[in-house]
């Protein structure tokens, strides 16, 4: 399915994934437009997480190809893939902060790993990133276990943005959060998008939260049983005639 003329950040061609004899993704073809927010919606078990792993190159397709920023991930060696993943930033469902490191150290981690910045430069950058996601200085040196769920998400987002990713992935960003924290995460995603729109950052959200999707997305893809059954701009998606989509929107 390919409705758009936009330049694609991710282009999936005939992707089929068979795991343990079960077909998870079935001849999937669609493109995710660059510099936009695209949400991949679907029921649990639809194949959303598998698709995410393919985009990150963590899974090899049984058949088909995944092109990210014009590169076919099938053509990259394991070592090249690791290097290529620096184009991505990812906010995990539960933030996935390193629990033995403070909020500051978590954000500094990718900077220390992949840049030649001096300690002072790293400090300046980490302070800037943490402040930009609304973390106060008195929480900078707290361990993840001492932070609330919402704060962990903020720190996770700051860490994901540390290296200036070209593609920002959000895995179920609002699942299990209360309405106030959900709104905070939504605002965070939108603000992040707006701040990085000039440098062409693409945002991909994996979710089953319809409300969030409609509020912040430019495009919505609906995945069911390993197939994209609908892929439309958000304003058209709400009027989709697809029965499954209608059923999902009614929930």
């Amino acid at each position: 399915m390919d409705y758009f003329e936009e330049e694609k950040a991710v282009d999936i061609k005939g992707l089929t994934t068979i795991l343990g004899g079960q077909t998870i993704l079935n001849n999937l073809s669609f493109g995710i437009p660059k510099n936009k927010i695209t949400t991949i919606l679907g029921f649990s078990g639809a194949g959303k997480s598998t698709l995410l792993k393919h985009i990150l190159g963590l899974l090899k397709p049984t058949y088909g190809s995944v092109f990210v920023l014009g590169k076919n991930l099938n053509d990259l060696s394991e070592f090249e893939l690791k290097k290529f993943r620096r184009h991505f930033g990812m906010l995990f469902q539960y933030a996935a902060l390193f629990d033995s490191l403070s909020a500051y150290e978590n954000v500094a981690f990718p900077l220390n790993e992949f840049t030649d910045l001096s300690e002072d430069e790293v400090e300046e950058k980490v302070y800037g990133l943490l402040e930009s996601v609304g973390i106060k200085v008195d929480s900078f040196f707290k361990l993840p276990s001492e932070l609330s769920g919402g704060m962990r998400k903020r720190v996770g987002l700051a860490r994901a943005l540390a290296l200036g990713p070209d593609i920002m992935l959000y895995d179920e960003p609002t699942t299990g959060l209360d309405p106030i924290t959900t709104k905070m995460v939504n605002d965070l995603i939108l603000n992040t998008y707006r701040k990085n729109v000039d440098r062409g950052m693409t945002s991909i959200i994996i979710s089953h939260d319809v409300k969030v999707t409609l509020e912040i997305s430019d495009f919505v893809a609906f995945l069911d049983h390993g197939k994209i059954v609908e892929f439309l701009p958000v304003k058209d998606f709400v009027n989709s005639q697809n029965k499954l989509v209608q059923e999902f929107l009614a929930l």
Binding site: L56, L58, K82, K83, F84, R85, R86, F88, M90, F92, Q93, Y94, A96, L97, F98, D99, F109, P110, E113, F114
Partner: peptide, 18 residues
């Protein structure tokens, strides 16, 4: 093991770290 179940291993891999 606890890093694995809390997706911290995935976070390392996504950053391009083995």
């Amino acid at each position: 093991g606890s890093m694995k179940v809390t997706e911290q291993l995935d976070a390392l891999e996504v950053m391009g770290i083995s």
